[in-house]
Design a protein around this nucleic acid. Structure first.
Lengths: 111, 111
DNA sequence: CATTTATGTATCATAAATAGAACATTAGTA
DNA sequence: TACTAATGTTCTATTTATGATACATAAATG
């Protein structure tokens, strides 16, 4: 678990759990064992287990790697599309202000 | 960085970078400072910085939490839909075989 | 039903992430 | 342009995740 000062929201937790489910489901459907997925991911079997369980403390890189291997597409986009979006985003970010002058007003905790 | 035995694939790295970009973009557009996002996420400003930079070693829970706060929807689904998908998935998983008899054949590293 | 293999857990040593602070730099605003 | 605040960056102490191993359980196949 990360060291966040206040607890995870239900939404984030759910999202992590869902991703874990999708990975497990894809793995089983492709008849890949947890040990095999671990090898191909470069992770331990224990980590795969935590990922599929939806442990929010897992490194996001490891989770995404496992997802990619079993065929769960993040952002439902392929490699090329991803690259493309990234550079487009980069350009957009370059246009946005680099620093934000705090408004301190609006708060949204209702997700 | 997680302790993976072999390096992250380009695809996973890209996905993490993209998510970071989306978070930063949403944060700036909503005029929230990094410090403010840190507070509301329950994280340090340094962690927010690494998340937005796309560091694959960040805890997935922290990343998802920050994303949710600035309004980046994971799986483009709201809370209710997420819950729903999770329980549907749970049912589906219950029907799938619990263990997999290794086929050891098919390998896909071309993502 | 027996056998074999995958999975679920637990423990522990080690590696790594994180918080917190401090500081320099950059950028927004009056 | 001067002022102020946000950001980028580095450091260390501490917390935490991870890998490795071992073992018990459960489940698939003959």
């Amino acid at each position: 678990m990360a060291k966040l000062t206040h607890p995870y929201s239900r939404y984030s937790l759910d999202a992590v759990v869902l991703l874990g489910q999708l990975i497990r489901r894809a793995r089983i459907e492709r008849k890949i064992t947890a040990g095999e997925l671990a090898d191909r991911t470069g992770a331990s079997r224990g980590l795969i287990h935590r990922i599929e369980k939806g442990d929010p403390g897992c490194a996001i890189g490891a989770v995404f790697e496992a997802a990619a291997i079993v065929g769960v597409r993040l952002f439902d986009a392929d490699k090329a599309t991803l690259e493309n979006t990234i550079s487009t985003n980069k350009a957009t970010l370059a246009l946005l202000p680099k620093a934000v002058r705090a408004s301190k007003i609006e708060a949204r905790d209702d997700f």
